[in-house]
Deep mutational scan, measured.
Amino acid sequence: SKIRITWGDKTWEWDGDDEEVWKRILEWARNLGDEELWRHVKEWVDK
């Protein structure tokens, strides 16, 4: 399956939905430097 994140007018996609993928997404969000996006992603990961 895919994980799709839409933020503003951008959309990103990742293949898979296991823990490793979420770790990569969390790292990606942090590297993007958008605090609010990172917080949202972290909330999803922690669920």
Rank of each mutant, 00 (worst) to 15 (best):
S1G: 14
S1D: 10
S1A: 13
S1Q: 12
K2W: 09
K2T: 12
K2C: 06
I3V: 10
I3L: 06
I3A: 01
R4F: 14
R4Y: 13
R4S: 15
R4V: 15
I5C: 02
I5L: 13
I5G: 00
I5N: 00
T6P: 02
T6R: 08
T6M: 08
W7D: 01
G8I: 03
D9N: 10
D9F: 02
K10G: 05
W12Y: 14
W12D: 01
W12C: 00
W12G: 06
W12H: 08
W12L: 04
E13V: 10
E13H: 04
W14A: 02
W14K: 00
W14P: 00
W14T: 01
W14D: 01
D15C: 02
D15K: 06
D15S: 09
D15M: 06
G16C: 08
G16T: 10
D17W: 07
D17L: 07
D18A: 08
D18S: 13
E19T: 12
E19Q: 12
E19S: 13
E19R: 11
E19D: 11
E20L: 13
E20C: 09
E20M: 11
E20R: 12
V21Q: 03
V21L: 06
V21C: 03
V21H: 02
V21D: 04
W22H: 10
W22A: 04
W22M: 11
K23G: 09
K23Y: 08
K23F: 08
K23N: 13
K23L: 08
K23T: 10
K23H: 09
R24D: 12
R24A: 15
R24M: 11
R24G: 07
R24W: 06
R24V: 13
R24E: 11
R24S: 13
I25S: 00
I25D: 00
I25Q: 00
L26M: 10
L26G: 05
E27K: 06
E27Y: 06
E27V: 12
W28T: 02
W28E: 02
W28H: 03
A29Q: 01
A29F: 06
A29T: 03
A29Y: 02
A29M: 03
A29L: 04
R30Q: 13
R30Y: 14
R30D: 09
N31W: 07
N31D: 12
N31E: 13
N31I: 06
N31M: 13
L32R: 10
L32F: 15
L32T: 15
L32M: 15
L32K: 11
G33A: 09
G33C: 09
G33E: 12
D34Q: 04
E35S: 08
E35A: 09
E35F: 03
E36M: 05
L37A: 04
L37M: 10
W38F: 15
W38D: 05
W38Y: 15
R39A: 13
R39D: 14
R39H: 11
H40V: 15
H40I: 13
V41P: 00
V41Q: 00
V41L: 10
K42L: 15
K42A: 14
E43F: 04
E43D: 15
E43P: 01
W44R: 02
W44I: 15
W44C: 03
V45N: 07
V45M: 15
V45G: 08
D46R: 02
K47A: 15
K47I: 14
K47F: 08
K47M: 15
